[in-house]
Design a binder for these strands. Structure first.
Lengths: 190, 190
DNA sequence: CTTAAAATGTGACATAGGTCACATAAATTA
DNA sequence: TAATTTATGTGACCTATGTCACATTTTAAG
């Protein structure tokens, strides 16, 4: 399936755009390809776009003063990624986004998204619901953080996204779970 | 300032509604008052509304199998609260909402919000941006959880919302920070 | 005002997870 | 293919936080 079709199916789950409306919607997206390890957003950058993953896998992450990495999100196909704080508030990026594998994305600028939302009520509807879902997911993760131990969180993650196991090294999984790689490694020790 | 005015000022920060549009918008909200300790949403309920706080303070929280409480959010004036997962997905509540102090709210049903969003493009714009902001805040809190220790998180919380210190008992603050009340109590021990 | 309930402080001890060090294995790159 | 980097496993030890117990203070309710 090509990029346009993948986005179309994704959008149709949350909003009803006519074919013409979707063609217009799609016209604002730019196709981009990145190599494994390539950096898309790096701390301190001005952030102009958000990215819809067509194939491959991105991560968004924060590096603290001790150079420890915390992963906010893995972005697999049909997921969106950016530094939304920087994007929405026109400030410099405080998080980074890079490629765990070779990745194709559709890129949408902040200005174009707002233009779309203004001109097409249905587009605004789509983006409202996309964020609603993200908001719910973020709160679930927060609760899981407070309530569950590492082992449980690790198993939940793999149950929810089995693909990750094969694509993402364990040190990155640890950085997503918020523990040291050693602790993750020891979970299934003898 | 009365409820309608408080909501109007709040909405105006994110969307430009004409006076007539806002009157229509406001007509969907119902005024409700609750006493300290009163339960608004309780686990297992069907959830029909979201609540915009006019005065007082709500908390939304989860109780785990060991009866330990985790607070997702304190809702002060001009904040919104509900079990959004249950509200948006039409499932039973998994979290609770109750009143830390006597509280006045404006209540908006799920059906009415969607109706409003359909009929008034500007209303949809408002709700999109409201959730955008919630999404960013949730991700910031997640990062802070992973990156910062209890003492730092406690001090950040009080810096951001000094009102909480006087209104909210420390055992609830601990439940928000995700630590035991004993640990919070010991932070400033000799 | 009195009594019950809730909130808070603190000691003793248990435990999950962190850190550092080093060995090995796997994956990239020259 | 060899060389280098990255990922992983594991021991020893440290530390933050949890749990339980009990005393004290504060707040709410009769």
């Amino acid at each position: 399936m090509e990029a346009k079709e993948i986005l179309k199916v994704h959008v149709a789950k949350l909003a009803s755009l006519s074919d013409d409306e979707f063609d217009y919607f799609f016209s604002f997206f730019k196709n981009q390809s990145f190599k494994k390890g390539q950096v898309i957003i790096s701390e301190g950058d001005m952030v102009d776009c958000e990215y819809f993953v067509i194939s491959g896998c991105l991560k968004s992450f924060y590096i603290n003063d001790d150079l420890k990495m915390f992963i906010l999100q893995f972005a697999m196909p049909t997921w969106w990624a950016s530094d939304y704080n920087a994007l929405y508030n026109h400030t410099k990026a405080s998080i980074n986004v890079d490629c765990i594998t070779d990745t194709e994305v559709l890129c949408l600028s902040n200005a174009d998204r707002e233009k779309l939302c203004n001109e097409l009520h249905n587009a605004e509807h789509f983006f409202r619901w996309r964020t609603n879902k993200g908001y719910i997911a973020a709160n679930k993760r927060l609760l899981s953080f407070m309530n569950n131990n590492v082992k449980y969180r690790y198993e939940e993650l793999l149950k929810l996204y089995p693909e990750l196991y094969n694509i993402v090294p364990k040190n990155l999984i640890a950085a997503y779970l918020g523990v040291s790689r050693e602790t993750l490694s020891r979970l299934y020790q003898a």
